[in-house]
Simulated scan of single mutants.
Amino acid sequence: MKLGLTRFPRAAYAAVAASLALCALARLAAPAHAAAPEKLAIMVGGTNKLIYLPARLAEQLGYFKAEGLDVELLSQPTGIEGENEMLAGAVQGVVGFYDHTIDLQTRGKEVKTIVVFGQVPGEVQLVGAKSADAIRSMADVRGKTLGVTGLGSSTSFLTQYLAQRAGVPSTHYTLLPVGADGSFIAAMRQGRIHAGMTTEPTVTELLKSGDAKVLVDMRNVDGTRAALGGTYPASSLYVQTTWLDAHPDEAAKLARAFVKTLRYMHAHSAEQIAAQMPTEDVGNDRALYISALQASLPMYTVDGKMPADGPQTVLKVLSSFNPAVKGRHIDLSRTFTNQFVNDVKP
């Protein structure tokens, strides 16, 4: 005997229909699965440099992941290389010096800083111990070879400005790109450069070994104002404006992660911060690293905001010698925004 549909109890039909309806409603009411976080690549002009420490520290503290971000930090020895990677679309952002946003605007490239790490450069103009008697100020660099991380880098901008302010035109000395860290130390010790600009922890290492002396110190606000005439926003996170317009949510999350990191830094000692850092960044001499970090702490902002007088100071420096900037109209409002850091809750 065949079992036709007519033999199936009507009550069962009703139960099945009700069950199907409830499942359909449940599917409609259930939230859609959140898309996997977009992988963001950020180029850092040297992940082990203390001027860029907030990038690595944010990663170590888990603040990117807490924001639902999948961030990969890549390292290049100079900011100019990171800038080129960003313009080519290989990375979404760069942790480098703010002054690149001004230089790029003269080339028709719209780039914005969205978080400021350093209210001052954190750079130090060192003079080799063998040249210290002959070079007592930037007015004495005529005929000398001055080390910078790379031509077109922020160290070259600042070196030229300091020399010009001391009355020495750029044609009266030689800029030699020597990189950073070990290559800079080697150039100084071998006498290939008479003086040079670098950051921590390289500064402390050369001072501790007696291979160099401080000529100009821009690791704090007072020293920077004396050298440059104002605060000089330097290490920062900048992105292309087109990316920013298309990814405001990711930008806001990055801003929150970095502002939380800056707040952490101002609430903890150099020893506590160093304890969070990977061994390869700290190096073999932990005491030296902590000492260098302690000397660097005054340069960091606490809130990621652009200092009020900062952009004008940077523009003044670049306009003094950079032919691409000199005499050009620069719309500083297009080079940074405090929008995202302003939205970070206390």
Rank of each mutant, 00 (worst) to 15 (best):
Ile102Cys: 02
Lys65Asn: 11
Ile80His: 08
Leu146Val: 11
Gly147Ile: 09
Ile51Pro: 14
Ala132Arg: 08
Leu57Lys: 02
Leu50Val: 08
Cys23Pro: 08
Leu73Thr: 03
Ala32Trp: 03
Leu20Cys: 13
Tyr63Asn: 14
Pro77Met: 09
Arg107Asp: 06
Val116Gln: 13
Lys65Thr: 10
Ile135Asp: 07
Leu40Met: 04
Gly96Arg: 04
Gly147Lys: 07
Ala90Ile: 13
Arg56Ala: 15
Ala21Asn: 05
Gly79Leu: 02
Val148Tyr: 02
Thr106Lys: 01
Gly68Met: 08
Thr106Gln: 03
Leu22Trp: 10
Gly122Met: 09
Gln105Val: 09
Ile80Gly: 11
Ala55Arg: 04
Gly93Glu: 06
Gly93Trp: 01
Ala132Pro: 12
Ala129Asn: 05
Arg107Pro: 02
Ile114Thr: 05
Arg136Thr: 14
Ala30Gln: 10
Ala55Ser: 15
Asp133Phe: 08
Glu123Gly: 09
His33Gly: 14
Gly62Cys: 01
Asn84His: 09
Pro31Cys: 13
Thr149Asn: 10
Ala36Ile: 07
Gly96Pro: 00
Leu69Asn: 04
Gly46Leu: 04
Gly82Asn: 06
Ala55Cys: 14
Leu61Met: 06
Cys23Ile: 15
Met86Val: 05
Ala29Thr: 13
Gly96Ala: 15
Phe64Asn: 01
Ala134Leu: 12
Gln60Tyr: 02
Thr106Tyr: 03
Arg142Ala: 13
Val95Phe: 07
Met86Tyr: 01
Leu126Asn: 03
Ala24Lys: 07
Val16Phe: 05
His33Cys: 14
Ala32Tyr: 05
Val124Gly: 06
Val127Thr: 10
Ile51Cys: 11
Ala134Ser: 15
Lys144Ser: 04
Ser75Trp: 00
Gly118Ile: 09
Gly147Cys: 01
Glu110Gln: 12
Lys65Phe: 04
Ala139Glu: 05
Tyr98Arg: 00
Arg142Tyr: 01
Glu38Ile: 12
